[in-house]
Design a protein around this nucleic acid. Structure first.
Lengths: 242, 242
DNA sequence: TTCAGCATGTTTGTTAACAATCGTGTCAAC
DNA sequence: GTTGACACGATTGTTAACAAACATGCTGAA
């Protein structure tokens, strides 16, 4: 199966795996909304949590910041990113520009094995939904999109999708009505059908509608839900004149 | 007096600017093919070149690796990335999936000022071409694509384009016939015309044809031009299996 | 009581020294 | 003459200590 395959890049030492794992774990926690936007990510806490040295954590945070999943504030530390309305617009726009093509590519390349895996995943997703297991439902619906990118067979776009899905979770956490999940599974089911028929055009259309649907569920004009950090608003990280 | 200080930097002090600058400088050098694929980027040399500490260089290299512009080999150092044929395919595929949409967005949003700036840029590009100034020509033709992404007004996609353009330069350096530049300016001129007419569909089509044209100029079946690194072939850092 | 100023503790940022690994050159043996 | 092993030098990876900045709580005066 193509999923979770041996996708180790050239830069893989045994330690490096641990590094990438830290990033992935934090990605996952953000997707599941266990780490809400604005949460402070203290270095020492992360060192303790992952049982690694400070350097490793520091590098992981830098990597996360380069994907705009965390923000680095000078002398204040790392925080889970708090996308602005403008950034949210850009994320949705980027997804609309990219993911329909991913769906198209996936429809052209999906093997029977791929489709079976997606169907199994969708089943888990539905179960989580039915059981009211919100956390799993969110994670699984996000993972569906990354699985599709894996089926599409392009690691560059896979990396982009991972970033965009994670940031979407943050956006929904901030601007979405409480209780709203990332995706409806109905759309995902339709997508799998299109893949079964190898209908690239239909897959693209479904994905586009699906993304617009998600976008409609958030209200970017709403004030950022989670408590605003008044510090950076009023004191501008002011470097006090010495 | 400190009350409403000029706080233009939100998440970065003056030092952070230097960091991003290092990354940008290296990006530019790679685009201009002053740093061919496989070039070793020694830490001490970079420290000397940029006049900063080792830590800063190390972070910059990690950032560059996360964009797949450099490769990090354990205990051996950093090297300018050497895209495989498969990676090259993925880069072109990603550009074909993304950049036509960027062109579309740019056509919808370009102001007169934007178009004038692009036209001025194209003029420089043509001059560099006419003067046989290969290095400038390459850099400018790459910058044209990033400028287009700026006009499109989406910083997420701008970041992706920067990465893809840089990697394309590496690919051309490896698999392209010597003397081949990244783009023809004719296509760029047509693109500007489409923007003038606000014809998004035409802009998209031109961009697609343009990218296919670039792709045709490289021969991915050709053996990687610059000496193959037998080390990564035989010592297990390369995965390529299954 | 409230607010300004100050001192303290905690967290981050930086530097330097140390340890480990790798590439290279030399020397000896076949 | 070629090949293998060994040792040395150089570069990277890691850790720890140090310095600086921020946040917090306390004291004292208005």
């Amino acid at each position: 199966m193509t999923l979770a395959g041996p996708n180790k890049e050239q830069l893989s030492t045994a330690e490096e795996v641990a590094e990438e794992q830290i990033v992935d774990r934090i990605f996952e926690a953000v997707i599941e909304q266990r780490l809400p936007a604005g949460t402070k990510l203290s270095e020492s806490a992360l060192c303790q949590a992952f049982g690694v040295g400070r350097m490793r954590i520091r590098r992981s945070l830098l990597l996360l910041a380069s994907r705009e999943v965390v923000e680095l504030h000078s002398n204040r530390g790392a925080f889970v990113a708090r996308p602005t309305a403008e950034q949210a617009r850009e994320v949705f726009e980027a997804r609309l520009a990219i993911e329909p093509n991913v769906a198209r590519m996936a429809a052209n390349r999906a093997t029977g094995e791929d489709i079976a895996a997606l169907a199994r995943h969708l089943e888990l997703e539905s179960q989580a939904h039915a059981n009211g297991n919100r956390r799993d439902a969110i994670r699984l619906s996000g993972q569906f999109h990354t699985m599709l990118a894996e089926v599409a067979g392009n690691s560059v776009m896979l990396r982009m999708i991972k970033e965009l899905v994670t940031r979407t979770s943050l956006i929904i956490g901030i601007y979405g009505a409480p209780g709203v999940t990332n995706c409806r599974d109905d759309d995902h089911a339709d997508l799998i059908d299109a893949l079964r028929k190898s209908d690239a055009e239909q897959a693209s259309n479904i994905m586009e509608a699906h993304l617009r649907h998600i976008e409609e569920r958030v209200d970017l004009k709403a004030s950022p839900g989670t408590g605003v950090d008044l510090i950076s608003v009023f004191c501008g990280t002011g470097k006090r004149g010495s």
